[in-house]
């Protein structure tokens, strides 16, 4: 994590230089297609032809893979256990003591895992190649309220600070001999005296933060300008429209697939 712009990984690539909306629309359309097209393997196919090559060009593929695995593995394991073993009915592939592994459950878990992997890797690809302030600016220009963009951006910056602060307090408690490792319950107990000052501190600070924002004309009505400049091109605009049309077609087709048997 570069720390400065959220997840952004500084690289000089064409993907990094694209307009934030182009990347946002691209990732969303990939997710949509991977989720909507029927078939167990469709999320994986979209992942391979949609996400991986772009991550490769943007030179963030190792980061995407590493953190996708980190995030998706717990989901995948629980999906496989729950769906594979507790699927009611279905073909038994293998008997494991009192449990039986079902083919249908397994396939369902594979598709679910694929969807999660696709969503996580798409989100990471977007955030590794796009500064979050530029993304929010692009969305604000499309009508997203400034207050939402403020909340997202300030949260992104405050979380790492919060973690650092929490770690400092934890370290202090550990050095005072407080148990901070071990079972969940023990750790919760060690954290309790930490949560209160963290939260109370911020509640008191909220008033000051609100005042500071007002001083900076945050609630002023009327046109706003921006120091950041986003570079857009007619080509990218066309691409975005095409992507959205494609997404619309997929939605229509999926809807037709769902509707047809019901009308027959």
């Amino acid at each position: 994590m570069s720390g400065t712009y959220g997840l952004y990984v500084v690289r000089q690539t064409g993907i990094h230089r694209l307009h934030p909306l182009t990347k946002l629309v691209y990732v969303l359309v990939c997710l949509l297609i991977g989720w909507l097209i029927p078939g167990v393997w469709s999320p994986y196919i979209v992942l391979l032809i949609g996400v991986v090559p772009v991550a490769l060009i943007a030179r963030v593929l190792p980061e995407v893979i590493k953190n996708t695995i980190k995030t998706a593995i717990p989901f995948a394991i629980s999906l496989i256990i729950v769906q594979g073993l507790f699927w009611t009915g279905g073909t038994i592939v293998r008997q494991l003591g009192p449990f039986s592994l079902k083919a249908e459950g397994l396939l369902f878990a594979i598709r679910g895992t694929g969807r999660i992997i696709l969503a996580v890797s798409g989100f990471l690809l977007l955030n590794y190649t796009t500064r979050s302030d530029e993304l929010m600016l692009a969305l604000s220009q499309k009508g997203l309220p400034n207050s939402i963009s403020y909340v997202v951006l300030s949260t992104l910056q405050v979380i790492p600070r919060f973690q650092r602060k929490a770690n400092t307090i934890l370290d202090a408690q550990r050095s005072r001999g407080l148990e901070t490792e071990g079972s969940y319950l023990i750790r919760m107990r060690a954290l309790m005296p930490l949560v209160v000052p963290l939260l109370l501190g911020s509640i008191v600070d909220i008033e000051e933060r609100a005042i500071a924002l007002e001083v900076r004309a945050f609630s002023r009505e009327g046109a706003k300008t921006s120091l950041l400049v986003l570079h857009d091109t007619r080509f990218q605009r066309a691409i975005r429209w095409l992507l959205m049309l494609g997404a619309m077609a997929v939605i229509g087709w999926r809807f037709y697939l769902w509707l047809a048997p019901r009308l027959a």
Binding site: D133, Y150, S154, V158
Partner: peptide, 10 residues
């Protein structure tokens, strides 16, 4: 600290 908006990165 409370006067920094937190919504800008530089």
């Amino acid at each position: 600290f409370n006067q920094i908006t937190g919504a800008r990165f530089s």
